[in-house]
Design a protein around this nucleic acid. Structure first.
Length: 822
DNA sequence: TGCCAGTAAAG
DNA sequence: CTGCCTACTGGCA
């Protein structure tokens, strides 16, 4: 039988791969394919033969044969022994046994995910259309792709029948404890409650059978719903057909875990995949949250990972998967990641190793007609352009000034040496393109295409392109982060350093070119610059009359060892809190604006000529650095925030402003913080939205009374005590195990309350609580944790007024410098 | 007042 | 498939 099918799901079962297709006639087709798991051993040939004999005698192998493969680090081809496991079920024991071998034996390709290994080896991509031929007994005979893996346009995916699952009450309340189950399908909803467990299970089972959903989209399915229902199913003997796979499946309730990523703890709940249909838990999928179903299809496809696994994978896993696929396609043997997790680093080590991105400090204040220019995908582009990869940094093949053996080895003369990595002085390989650049190049290209396409089509039609673009962004971001992780399979700290060193160099170059073109650089942050055209003087009152600020820091290029101190030099650290202003950043002799003489007349700055000048500048910098620099926009006005500890000092990461098109950009303010209660967030967002309508200094000034009135309205609501608890909930992540707390912070108190109620939180999980009304009681009573807010007796209005006040003050910073009397 | 623990942001 | 740096707050000595 021949047909067209969309590769929907796949998993290993027994000693075959099971593949599910949705055909163009809407059939759900299950096919099986043989795929022997092949791994390789390198080392003394006699030793390898002996090992193969041992494994044969245990019955773990179906066959073994000599083969050749390329070593990742040297690029040389080496002889290896290829071994095929007799069944997937033996892989666990096999790996354990291989782990006991001495160092003289190298193991390759032995710890790959079976489904992904199959996809790499067969060059197949999930969520794409194929022409397929099915043979006897549901076996796959042939599979020909009908579309490119990296295609800009997805052929339309089949219609997916969807069932939604969620809880009717707070997700921390278990089904056992009386929470209800809400089902949704085809626009209908059904709520089921627990008392009659077999009844509930039967109802769900009937629906699963009748509807046969492709996608079960849940809120909390991984963590609570499915595990509880499965347990009930076992306990009551009521069948629950979660899978399309008929036979027994080895459903592993993957253990929940907490891990660190970018210096922050992340909680990943247990995973509960279904066999032959998708189960996605919205609460347990980073990529679903960030980039939706279109983003998930995108990463499942190019990451060559079954979609359910891709949904729960950390971005690092995905980019690694692509690197593995690239390596396999290039005939590179994949080294086994045997190593133990990286040990603790001392503070000193961190300081010398990682200097990260460059930042200039913006003089705090309000500015008009500021242009923001951003490098697009700076770090990944640097990796691709400068050939930065773990095996290319200080590679042995290009080491030394002159490799005298080169000609003799018949490798030809070296290409002319490019300049070494700035600051670090490392050399990068000139013979081979690295694995990381080879992997990144097509992702970067696709992302640019998706971004352009989203701009072209605009509106609602742009959403899928935007989602896919966002998914790729996260892959690219983590590829860089992962490069610095010593124990990552394809990581090396020097490669990481080389990338950030190039990044600093490029930002500095951009600054120099901007200044040479007559722009003033107000601020810079890793891959962005904020520019203002400074020019002639004009004594008339202009928008720019309002620009004010303290002394800006203006780093210059420093050669030699001083370069290494660039960051410290940029932000000298005066003692904290010297005369610190705790309450208001600009009250009582705090922050004062400094008026600058007028610069360029505003009408010039709104002309096409200004735009054209900026475009020209971007081109020039793009050409000089090799990384695309684009105009993010021109702000009508932009406010850089002062430090709260020392109002004369700037902070790099807090600012807000309005672009020419009226859109807001807000960074670092209360409304961007996870731990800001909804009421305070709404207050700040409402004020900001109103301010976005003001384009000039005059309009901003005119708005002030209205903003004050709005702010007073929010204060009033809090004082009246009429705010609902849910609008006061503060959400934080539990950053460490509860037992490690030395201080009774609100987070610790709330987590302890939950603990007492039998709800155990792991590091990285969210804690939600409200500051209850203070009555001088013990501190345990000052906090009330969600979900137990029904019994809340009243909130600590004073505390929330304080939070609200801070949020309002942030916004009112704009008026810290009064416009001169007109 | 100084110090420390705890928590979060932007890139 | 795992440990940026910096800003800021609140509590304690």
């Amino acid at each position: 039988m021949e047909t067209n099918g969309w590769l929907f799901d796949l998993y290993p079962l027994g000693n075959r791969l099971v593949l599910w297709f949705i055909t163009d006639t809407g059939e759900r087709l299950r096919l099986e394919d043989d795929f022997p798991y092949c791994f390789y051993l390198g080392g003394p040939p006699a030793r390898l033969r002996a090992l193969a004999r041992t494994l044969q005698s245990r019955g773990w192998l179906s066959r073994s044969y000599p083969a050749r493969g390329r070593d990742l680090w040297t690029g040389e081809e080496i002889p290896v022994l290829a071994l095929e496991a007799r069944a997937y079920g033996l892989l666990f024991r096999l790996r354990h046994w291989l782990g006991t071998l001495p160092a003289e034996v190298e193991c390759y390709n032995c710890d790959l995910d079976v489904a992904s290994y199959y996809l790499y080896a067969r060059r197949l991509y999930p969520c794409a259309w194929y022409h397929l031929e099915a043979g006897e007994g549901g076996r796959l005979r042939r599979l020909d792709p009908l579309e490119e893996a990296f295609a800009l346009e997805f052929s339309p995916p089949p219609f997916l029948t969807t069932l939604t699952l969620s809880l009717t009450r707070d997700p921390l309340i278990s089904l056992d404890a009386g929470n209800g189950l809400a089902l949704g399908w085809e626009g209908r909803t059904l709520e089921l409650t627990a008392p009659d467990r077999p009844g509930l299970l039967n109802e769900l089972a009937r629906l699963l059978t009748r509807l046969d959903p492709d996608l079960v989209l849940s809120d909390g399915g991984d963590e609570t719903i499915i595990p509880t229902l499965s347990r009930w199913s076992r306990e009551t003997g009521t069948p629950l057909p979660l899978d399309r796979e008929r036979g027994p499946v080895d459903r592993k309730f993957g253990a929940p875990r907490s891990y660190f990523s970018y210096g922050r703890i992340v909680y990943q709940g247990a995973a509960v995949p279904f066999y032959g249909r998708w189960h996605l838990d919205r609460r347990n999928s980073f990529y679903y949250r960030e980039s939706g179903l279109a983003g998930l299809r995108q990463i499942s496809r190019i990451g060559q990972m079954p979609l359910q696994r891709a949904a729960r994978a950390s971005p690092g896993t995905l980019i690694t998967s692509m690197q593995l696929s690239r390596a396999l396609a290039d005939g590179i043997l994949i080294p086994w990641r045997k190593g133990e997790p990286e040990g603790f680093k001392t503070a000193g080590q961190l300081l010398t190793i990682d200097k990260g991105g460059l930042s200039f400090m913006p003089p705090p204040g309000l500015y008009f007609n500021v242009a923001e220019v951003d490098f697009a995908s700076m770090y990944p582009t640097i990796m691709a352009r400068h050939n930065i990869s773990p095996e290319t940094v200080n590679c042995p093949c290009c080491a030394g000034a002159i490799d005298l053996g080169d000609e003799a080895k018949g490798r030809g003369p070296l290409p002319p040496p490019p300049s070494p990595v700035p600051e670090a002085g490392y050399h990068l390989c000139r013979r081979r393109e690295g694995l990381v650049p080879r992997t990144l190049r097509p992702i970067l290209a696709l992302r640019e295409q998706l971004k352009a396409r989203a701009r072209e089509v605009g509106g609602e039609a742009a959403a899928p392109y935007r989602e896919r673009q966002t998914a790729l962004k996260w892959m690219l971001v983590t590829c860089f982060g992962y490069l610095g992780y010593k124990n990552a399979r394809f990581g090396k700290i020097e490669a990481h350093e080389a990338v950030t060193a190039h990044g600093r160099d490029k930002l500095l170059t951009a600054k120099e070119i901007s200044e040479a073109a007559g722009f003033r650089v107000l601020h810079g942050l890793t891959d962005c610059l904020w520019l203002q055209k400074d020019g002639g003087t004009d004594t008339e009152l202009r928008e720019n009359d309002l620009s004010f600020g303290g002394t800006g820091v203006s780093p210059v290029r420093v050669h030699g060892p001083q370069m290494l101190q660039l960051r410290e030099w940029q932000s000298p650290l005066p003692p904290f809190r010297k005369g610190g202003v705790k309450k208001s950043p600009f009250g009582k002799g705090g922050f004062r604006g400094i008026f600058k003489p007028a610069a360029i007349p505003n009408d010039f700055l709104n002309t096409n000529r200004y735009q054209a000048e900026l475009e020209k500048l971007c081109h020039k910098i793009t050409a000089a650095t090799g990384v695309k620099l684009a105009l993010a926009g021109v702000y009508r006005w932009l406010c850089f925030m002062p430090s709260r500890q020392d109002p004369k000092r700037p902070v790099a990461t807090r600012y807000f402003g309005v672009f020419e098109d009226g859109s807001l950009k807000v960074r670092g303010l209360a409304c961007r913080r996870r731990d800001t209660p909804p009421l305070v967030r709404r207050a700040q967002e409402d004020l900001l939205a109103r301010m976005a309508g003001a384009g000039t200094a005059r309009e901003l000034a005119a708005l002030r009374p209205e903003l004050e009135a709005m702010a007073e309205g929010f204060r009033q609501r809090l004082r009246e005590g009429s705010v609902k608890p849910r609008d006061l909930v503060i959400t934080r992540v539990l950053p460490q195990p509860l037992a490690d707390y030395k201080v009774d912070t609100p987070t610790a108190l709330a987590a302890r309350q939950l603990e007492a109620a039998g709800i155990h939180l792991l590091p990285g999980e969210q804690v939600r609580y409200v500051h209850a009304e203070k009555k001088g009681g013990p501190k345990e009573c000052r906090i009330q944790a969600a979900p137990f807010l029904e019994t809340l007796d009243g909130y600590d209005a004073e505390h929330y007024l304080e939070l609200l006040e801070r949020a309002i003050e942030e916004i009112m910073t704009v008026y810290a410098a009064q416009p001169p009397a007109i």
